[in-house]
Every structure is written in structure tokens, then in C-alpha cells.
Design a protein around this nucleic acid. Structure first.
Lengths: 263, 263
DNA sequence: CGTTGCGTTGAGACATTTCAAAATGTGTGG
DNA sequence: CCACACATTTTGAAATGTCTCAACGCAACG
């Protein structure tokens, strides 16, 4: 058993994302990581562009959608970050993922017509909304795009299964190490430093996600600092010994290589 | 931390599944639950039929594929049951799922060209092998089929996330209850009794899957029997009080209704 | 400058694990 | 079909990692 506390901050909800930022996929720095990867010709990217709605930024705590809402769109994070979570009957929350820029959110609602999780901004966040019916139309003519959608989902399955492994076999130290290593590697891929970054989630949210009590998270952080593995001031994290951390995370060898190779 | 023991039984491996049973999808009792659901016309089902390879049965312990094998096909369980598992660097296994007849296995390998898990028969098991390139060709002409593939994956994501919730928030009793309720409901959907059935996995495998030590699983079982919730003789399970079990499982209300409604 | 939210730290409680051993089940070769 | 070897399951007792509860510090904020 872990944290029984819920941390929903604002019941505020943003149903219709309005047009107010005019950026196009072809100018977006994220496009090599995002949906446009699947589209070869500029013309196709422009088509994608047209179906995407770019709304006003979500403020911290605002929901993009709630568990049970009608499934209409998938979303790509443009900037900021989101968390997704489910809750049990008794109202306990389980965070199922943190989502960084270029990552797609909402696809798991595909076959139920309802989102199976809620999505909430952890900081000021911009998203691209892609109406699913339009996306499917576009995918009709673009096998590559279809394929990529499947790939995104299959990656999510793999990640979730690694998470199951973490939750059922790893101890507190290993969980936190895994989490940091994973975050670092995602930051790096997005062009940010993998050595030092800012966590967008609270200790509480981290604990919730990792199946640990807040206090345990805090204790592991101070322990890691004493061992000179990391340096943490609040949410600012500096990774001092990525190798050691990766070793401790003890995941797949392939994930480790990715991070420990010098940046 | 849980069971450190691995239970791989046979390193034997079945690479090429040979033709030896001639059953077609249209005569298969599972087709309403399986891929053919997506195909409206008998002609299309026959096409699907042609690309499916039906091999000799796998014996208990035999592998369908190993983690890291080249991804070539997805598989549907015809009879018997499979488990899929990943393993950490140190060789610890984590079972990621048990698969009953009509369920699809292997889709999560889609985007890496390698299966991210191993799949092993838990008893004598027959599978239908569907070469992925052929499946994609067929899907080209059948939006419904494409959609169903996506649905299968999105369902897997949802299930995995519920599993994450189980692993991070539920205690031993709740985990076992959830597991039994879930199995029962899957059996029912397949036309078997949801009241009494045979577990195809060992206590060890159950523990591994649920993030519990074997001994804990055993203890919970005896406790449940003393409380007249179930009656268990070895792998034969009889569910005496489905309502209580569902309540204890404490998952989503919608899952509970499915089971507790009288059969 | 009190309030509020979040993070840290300590001490004790507790569920589950670990270790050990007995009991039961299963498969195999004679 | 029995007997033996081996695997699995059960049960008990002790060990332990994490949680819970409680208190405190700190920063942001009206």
C-alpha cells in the first residue's frame, strides 16, 4: 500500500481548445520526433497541419480530458508536460505516465470511445489536438502514418510492461534510479541536457507513479545525494554519476547504453 | 522484492510452425472474439484463412518466440494458454501476461522488429500464426481490420495500466481477488464457466505476475478458503462468493458488473 | 507575519519476504 | 503399477523494507 492522498488540483476543465497560436508542423522543432515523421512530402505535412487544432496553453492543474470523457482526439505535447492517471473505486489515483513534448497522449481510448485515464497539465503546457476521425482519414492515404500510430502504441505497451517489471521486482532505490535514467534519456533525445534538468512533478506524484510513499522518495533522494550519485535542490536535478545510476536501475542493457555514452 | 527464481522449463524452441491442422476461421468457434470479427464477408475471412499458418501444438514449456527474436508474426491462441515475460539484466523474469484462446500475442514487437517479450506455452497449446507482412497487406483493403488491430493494442494498454495500478496500490488479498475475478470474466466470455475453472499457471507464476512471493499467494489462497470465498484444490478453482471477491478486487465498477451478474 | 503547500526526518508499525522444513503432487523408468 | 526422484505447494517463524504517523523546516504568498 502506498500514498492514499489525491492531489487533484483544479477541477477546471478545458473542453474546446481554441485556435490562437499559428505554428505549423513544418516549422516545429519537434516534428522529427512527432507524427510528421511518418509523412515524406511537405504537402502531406501541410494537410496534417490543417487538421491540428492548437489551443491556448493549459495552466498547471488544468485537465485536458477526464477519465470517461468521450474520445474524440489524440494530443501531442508541444511544450510543458502532462500526467495521465486512473483512479480506483475508492478514489485512489494511479499515475500511469508523464508526457514530455512530442509525445502522444490519448491513444489508449481508441476502442472504448472514452478516455480510460485523465490527463492533467503539470505546468503551463501547450498541446496540439488532432481530431481522431480526421487523423484516420489522413491515415487512409498514408500507410506510413498508420504504421506510426501502431508503433506509438506498441512502444507504449512495451514501456508499460517495463513499468510492471519495475513495480513488481524493483526496490525503492532501483525504482528512483530507473525513473531518473529514463527521464534523462528522454530529455536528451529532445535536445535538452540529460545531466541536469528540472522535474515537473512533485515528490508526491513521483511516489504515486513509482508505487512508493512520498517519504520514501524523499529518503532515497537524500541517500543518493550522500552517495554523490545526484545533486538535487528541490526539483532541479543534476546527475553526477550516470553510470552508477544506470547500473542501479538495472534495466535492459540497451537502455543503459543510450544514456551512459558521453554527451 | 519477490521471487528471484526463474522457471524456464525447456529451452526447446519452435521456429517454423508447420501446417498440420486444417481448421478454418469460418468454422472456428472463437471467430467472434478473434480477428475475423473485423471482416464482414465470408470471402474476406477465407482470405485471412489463407495467410494463417496453423502449426502442431506446442507442448507445455515450449517457446513460441523468445525476447529478441525477429518480429515476423502475430499469434492467436486457439486452445491452451501462453504466458509472456520479460527479464531484467540479472535474469529475473517478469510475467507480463497470460493469454487465453482468441487472444492475440506478439503485437508489441511491431515497432522494434524484435519481440520485446518471450512467449511460452503453459500447457499443450495450439496457435494460429499470422505473418505480419501479409496481415498488413490484408489490412490495406480492410479499414475494419486495421481498426481492430489498433483496438487490440489499445485494450492491451488499458489492461497494462490497470495492472500498474494493481502492482502499486493493492495489497496481496486485493491482487489475488482481482486476478481471479479477471480470469473468471475472461473464461465466461469464452463460454466457459466463470464459477469453476482450472488455473493453467503455477502459484509461482501467479506470484511472479502479481508481484508477490509464492508463499504469499499460497497463504492468501488458504485464507480465502477459510473465508468461504473460494474453494481450491490444486489448480482447480471454484468461486463461491463472486460478489465479495469483486468487492475485494475493488477495481472499476464496470468490470465488476460484468462478473457479478448471475450466469 | 500567519497561512498553506511541499519536502524532509525520525521512530514505530506492519505487510510481505525470506528462510527452512514438511507435505503433497507429478512424472519416469523399471 | 509401484517406487523413486523431483517439483510444487503449504506452513511456520524470523527478518526486513517500506509505510504510517507525527513533527518540523522552508519557501511562496496574500
Amino acid at each position: 500500500m502506498t500514498s492514499k492522498l489525491n492531489l487533484r488540483q483544479t477541477p477546471v476543465r478545458q473542453a474546446n481548445v481554441r485556435q490562437c497560436t499559428n505554428v505549423s508542423c513544418k516549422d516545429c522543432s519537434l516534428s522529427p520526433l512527432c507524427l510528421p515523421t511518418a509523412l515524406r512530402f511537405e504537402e502531406d505535412i501541410i494537410n496534417l497541419d490543417h487538421i491540428i487544432k492548437r489551443g491556448r496553453p493549459l495552466k498547471k492543474g488544468e485537465h485536458l480530458f477526464l477519465e470517461g470523457d468521450a474520445f474524440t482526439s489524440v494530443f501531442a505535447v508541444r511544450s510543458g508536460s502532462l500526467k495521465t492517471y486512473t483512479s480506483t473505486n475508492e478514489g485512489e489515483e494511479q499515475i500511469t505516465g508523464f508526457h514530455l513534448p512530442s509525445e502522444l497522449v490519448g491513444l489508449s481510448g481508441m476502442d472504448t470511445d472514452h478516455y480510460p485515464v485523465s490527463a492533467q497539465a503539470m505546468e503551463t503546457t501547450m498541446v496540439c489536438e488532432i481530431p481522431f476521425d480526421k487523423l484516420e482519414e489522413l491515415a487512409l492515404e498514408h500507410p506510413q502514418l498508420r504504421r506510426q500510430l501502431m508503433c506509438v502504441m506498441s512502444k507504449e505497451i512495451r514501456d508499460d510492461q517495463q513499468m510492471m517489471l519495475l513495480l513488481s521486482k524493483k526496490n525503492a532505490d532501483e525504482r528512483i534510479a530507473t525513473f531518473l535514467v529514463n527521464l534523462a534519456s528522454r530529455f536528451r533525445r529532445r535536445g535538452f541536457s540529460s545531466q541536469s534538468f528540472r522535474l515537473s512533478m512533485s515528490r508526491n506524484e513521483m511516489g504515486n507513479y513509482l508505487g512508493l510513499a512520498v517519504e520514501t522518495v524523499s529518503r532515497v533522494f537524500t541517500r543518493f545525494q550522500k552517495q554523490d550519485l545526484i545533486h538535487a535542490v528541490g526539483k532541479e536535478i543534476e546527475i553526477l554519476d550516470p553510470q552508477a545510476l544506470s547500473r542501479m536501475a538495472g534495466g535492459k542493457a540497451r537502455d543503459q547504453i543510450e544514456l551512459t555514452s558521453v554527451h
